[in-house]
Design a binder for these strands. Structure first.
Length: 750
DNA sequence: GGGCTATTGCTTTTT
DNA sequence: GCAATAGCCC
């Protein structure tokens, strides 16, 4: 009866796939490694493969699992296969398939969360565990350092958390962490790791890495549970395989088990998450662990013009730790890669905005067709202001991350406390927000009480609220009153929220805790914060239809596991401002990559390590290959950094793009605010180095005067783009500054 | 205990 | 340059 699925698309599949793609789709039994370059139709292959499994091979959707990098990718895949859930009328690749909801598409983290909810009790995990994100983790590490009396000035909590996190992703538990090397740092980590894990367990919390680690341990210790999932997920597919870590790899191979129906899809050249413990060697391990695995390379690019592809190849081919591979395309040559220079980030943004407006008019692009990409989030600010100045609608992903905003986190903390009042991290967050007279002194006393009796903060407060207890303590009547009031508040919240849907619970919190009034007293800022909470309610609303028993927990889990990119929404026409990392897996007709400067891209922190430098190059490569038709690359001469402006030189990566593919344009002629129609100078073959040979307008040794810096002497002068960078040593403060000739307004002295 | 000011310390990328 | 904290004063 499983064979009665819709077969109508099958003929289309054969027409629209190339030879390698078709092979990747039809090779369904046994291990497969698909090396898929950018734009090679990877998503199509995965979706067609699933369709093939269901339609041709009679596999039930229930027995298939696809693991993606983000929730967004997961929901897109589901939609491509089955059409939109809400609309019902738009059919996907498969048309109408019974039991399509049984098909699993999710991220590793979501999948593990599900498994642990169902079977985690075998490892003593509460069903309603909370998932702690990086901010919560940092709070806990800081607390653990306090307990272990580690000086936070000497050891950074972030560095320690990074090591704990990387240990967890290598499946090293706090019990197994051995400081055997004799390195004093190791000893500290060992102590903090254990303490951190204790704190987590006390709060019934699980961090991101625990989701993967604990699921692995669950499978190790309970073969019957593992078998249950092996029998369920008989066909396993893993996307973005180059960015999986060891814990994820182990999970995948365990679930695949002896059936070995595991298909991984990845591209070593797009591995950009090593800092999150992703291990590119997983691709090698896969071939070692499955010596009979079928390797299929998808090398034809259907996305980009040949110019963009060749430019990107020029960049990526400079990496030495790389298996040589060159993509081909039959796409037209298209436009050159435009390289632009601006004086400062504001002007750089202006340059981008002007071009966006020009392309809209001349080519009929929509705002949705544009993305502006950058290395670090702080760059988004100038771009955002540029959009506002030019009335260009934009969506900013993760600048100040939504779920990191104070008011959103406060509300989530309340929600978590309702589910689990013994969640210390969340409780301490809201204990005095809005202010209710519980000061640090009172909190310290309660913390002491909780330590002494080995109970949670909330339990300690209940104890302290007990009238009999207060007689034996030196606690003031006032402090006793506020504690009692708070315990009552939490009790009432738990009681009154029972059975309500998530949105109503949020409303309940806003009223009962006085949070709404607290925000209203904050004027404009309060209004903005209230808007963010409304936004949270919109998310909460989506869980209205889920089984009442689970919807609250699912909602909390959902917000813990969302990524920012998940919220990227195409329904309103606006340009996307995103980091290069977030751009992975996306494509746009026109892409702007800004900030191509030494120290930014490549980032300064990669300078001392060859492998990190190569990863920076891959980051740039990923950005370039997002572009279908137009690719713009810009840089700024000056950039504010820690308060003072610094001069940046052009990124080394610019030199790797063959000069014949580039065309320069400059900001020189477009002061901010002016309306300029055409700033593109079609200069044909020229690159940065070409200009260096031109005659310099400034002699070395020339004495000059600057409005602000006073008198100085020219140290060097190099042509860059359509301007010259002059390095001047100034007398007054001895500073050596890089100036742009066209802007510096230097006065010649004799 | 709370609110204000001064100081510090920090900047990569994020499931 | 900004945001988070420490320390001071009410």
């Amino acid at each position: 009866m499983d064979l009665l699925y819709n077969l109508t698309m099958e003929s289309n599949i054969k027409v629209s796939l190339n030879k390698e793609q078709k092979e990747a789709v039809e090779y369904v039994s046994g291990p497969v490694l698909i090396l898929a370059g950018p734009g090679s139709g990877k998503t199509r292959v995965i979706t067609h493969r699933i369709a093939h499994l269901i339609n041709q091979c009679g596999v039930r959707p229930y027995n298939i699992a696809a693991v993606t990098f983000t929730n967004k990718a997961a929901s897109e895949m589901r939609q491509r296969l089955f059409g939109s859930d809400e609309l019902g009328d738009s059919l996907g690749l498969l048309g109408h398939v019974p039991n399509q909801r049984d098909f699993t598409v999710s991220t590793f983290h979501s999948l593990c969360s599900l498994i642990l909810r169902l079977d985690g009790s075998l490892m003593g995990l509460a069903k309603d565990f909370v998932i702690y994100d990086r901010d919560d983790q940092l709070t806990l590490v800081t607390k653990a350092m306090e307990i272990s009396e580690i000086d936070p000035k000497r050891f950074s909590n972030r560095a320690i958390l990074d090591i704990i996190s990387s240990s967890k992703s290598k499946l090293i538990t706090s019990d197994n962490y051995n400081a055997q090397t004799g390195n004093p740092m190791d000893r500290i980590i060992e102590v903090v790791y254990k303490s951190y894990q204790n704190l987590l367990e006390q709060s019934k919390g699980v961090d991101f890495d625990d989701l993967l680690l604990k699921t692995n341990l669950l499978f190790n210790n309970n073969p019957s549970i593992l078998k249950k999932y092996q029998d369920r997920y008989q066909y396993l597919m893993i996307d973005e395989f180059q960015d999986t870590n060891m814990a994820q790899y182990n999970l995948a191979t365990k679930i695949a088990g002896k059936r070995e129906n595991i298909c991984v899809v990845g591209d070593p050249d797009q591995s950009i998450y090593s800092w999150r413990n992703a291990d590119i060697r997983n691709i090698l391990s896969f071939q070692e662990d499955y010596p009979k695995c079928k390797v299929i390379s998808l090398n034809e690019n259907y996305r980009s013009t040949s110019t963009i592809l060749d430019g990107a190849y020029g960049v990526i081919s400079q990496n030495t730790q790389r298996i040589e591979r060159k993509l081909t395309t039959s796409n037209p040559k298209g436009d050159p890669i435009f390289v632009g220079e601006a004086y400062n980030p504001e002007e750089e943004a202006q340059l981008v905005m002007k071009e966006i407006n020009r392309l809209r008019v001349e080519r009929g692009y929509l705002y949705n067709d544009f993305a502006v990409m950058y290395r670090v989030n702080s760059q988004s600010r100038a771009l955002e202001e540029g959009c506002l100045r030019n009335s260009i609608p934009y969506k900013l992903i993760g600048g100040l991350r939504f779920y990191q905003r104070k008011e959103v986190r406060d509300l989530i903390a309340y929600l978590r406390v309702i589910v689990n009042p013994h969640d210390n991290v969340s409780l301490l967050r809201i204990i005095n927000t809005p202010p209710r007279g519980i000061g640090q002194k009172t909190i310290d006393e309660i913390a002491e009480l909780s330590d002494k009796n080995k109970i949670s903060i909330y339990a300690a407060m209940e104890l302290a609220a007990n009238a009999k207890f207060v007689e034996d303590s030196k606690r003031s009547g006032r402090s006793h009153r506020v504690i009692s009031k708070f315990v009552d508040l939490v009790t009432n919240l738990i009681h009154d929220s029972d059975g309500l849907d998530p949105t109503s619970i949020i409303n309940l919190i806003l009223e009962m805790t006085g949070y709404r009034v607290y925000l209203e007293d904050q004027g404009d800022q309060g209004t903005e914060r209230m808007d963010n909470i409304e936004e949270l309610k919109v998310t909460a609303n989506k869980f209205q239809n889920v089984d009442p028993e689970d919807r609250f927990i699912e909602f909390l889990q959902g917000i813990a596991l969302v990524s920012d990119i998940d919220s990227l929404d195409d329904s309103q026409d606006s340009i996307a401002l995103i980091t290069l990392h977030q751009a992975k897996g996306l494509e746009f007709p026109a892409v702007f990559i800004v900030g191509l400067e030494e120290g930014l891209l490549p980032h300064i922190r990669s300078f001392d390590y060859a492998d990190q430098m190569e990863e920076e190059r891959r980051v740039f490569y990923v950005g370039m290959t997002r572009a279908k038709e137009c690719l713009y690359i810009t840089r700024s001469f000056r950039r504010g950094y820690m308060g003072n402006g610094v001069s940046n030189v052009a990124s080394r990566f610019l030199m790797d793009i063959p000069s014949a593919l580039m065309s320069h344009f400059s900001s020189r002629s477009i002061p901010i605010g002016s309306v300029v129609t055409d700033v593109i100078k079609q200069s044909g073959a020229s690159d940065l180095s070409d200009h260096a040979t031109e005659t310099s307008p400034m002699e070395v040794g020339q004495k000059v005067r600057h409005d602000r810096f006073g008198d100085g002497i020219v140290v060097s002068c190099t042509a860059i783009g359509y301007d010259y960078q002059v390095t001047v040593a100034f007398k007054a403060d001895g500073g050596v500054r890089n100036l742009l000739l066209g802007y510096a307004n230097l006065q010649l002295l004799d």
